[in-house]
């Protein structure tokens, strides 16, 4: 196993208030890592640190080391567009742009200056296939992406991220707005995708974490309580707090 993303001594402050209290997590390549914990524990906040989405918030300070390979994500020389191509993100609510499926998936490449129709066609098809939604949309590529079901929209959004060939995909509760069948399809998709990508997923669904994640990190009040192989976490976690949380016995 090779480490792809390494964070150390992560602190985050909203003004005076410290929201992440200093922890280390290392992510392995071609694995799915789940971040779990109660609402407000800092898991989404931490996820957003990984591709500097918190930079967009006023009054937010992030300290600590974030490295993808040898490169410092927070170096002043980091090109934000390049970074977010490399570390893509999928959100809780499917958020396709209000135009065609094709234009959605081709969006990133067009921004990057790709104009060759043949290249775009290929990438759109490949990405939609990787996101396991090709068969459902291939005859309607010019239809508005918003006219598809929630589950299909989410997979179109995943395809849009895949089109720019990221190394890492961050997902913030990508199935919480979806029905169980659509969720299961996304989960299957993720298990396929991890062969080519590294996935870090925030989820409130414990069973989802246990089904798909190789490793699971349990966070609480801005601290990392436990980070272990998922099978270990769900059978014999090191911490009682982890067991209590997983069994819904919190507070």
């Amino acid at each position: 196993m090779t480490s792809i993303l390494k964070t150390e001594n992560v602190h985050l402050y909203y003004g005076e208030k410290e929201a992440l209290h200093g922890f280390d997590i290392e992510f392995e390549q071609n694995e799915i890592t789940a971040l779990i914990g109660p609402s407000g524990c800092g898991k989404s906040t931490f996820l957003r640190c990984l591709n500097r989405m918190n930079d967009l918030r006023n009054n937010t300070t992030v300290t600590g080391s974030f490295k993808i390979g040898d490169r410092d994500i927070y170096a002043p020389t980091t090109d934000m567009t390049e970074l977010r191509k490399e570390i893509g993100m999928v959100f809780q609510q499917p958020n396709p742009f209000p135009f065609s499926v094709y234009d959605n998936v081709a969006y990133g490449l067009r921004i990057a200056g790709v104009k060759d129709k043949k290249v775009l066609d290929e990438v759109v098809e490949k990405s939609l296939k990787q996101a396991a939604v090709w068969d459902e949309v291939k005859d309607d590529l010019n239809k508005n992406a918003l006219s598809f079901s929630g589950g299909q929209q989410q997979r179109i959004c995943i395809a849009r991220v895949l089109a720019v060939k990221p190394k890492i995909i961050l997902m913030d509760e990508p199935t919480s707005a979806l029905d169980p069948i659509s969720s299961a399809k996304i989960e299957d998709t993720l298990l396929e995708l991890k062969k080519d990508f590294t996935i870090i997923i925030v989820t409130h669904n414990m069973q989802q974490a246990s089904r798909i994640a190789d490793k699971t990190a349990f966070m609480l009040n801005g601290d990392l309580i436990e980070y272990n192989k998922t099978s270990k976490m769900f059978l014999n976690p090191d911490k009682q707090q982890t067991s209590d949380y997983l069994n819904g016995e919190f507070g």
Binding site: M206, Q207, M233, F234, L235, N236, Q240, S243, L246, N247
Partner: peptide, 10 residues
Amino acid sequence: LRQPVASNFR
């Protein structure tokens, strides 16, 4: 019905 995990499962 409860899908116990970790110590509850054991």
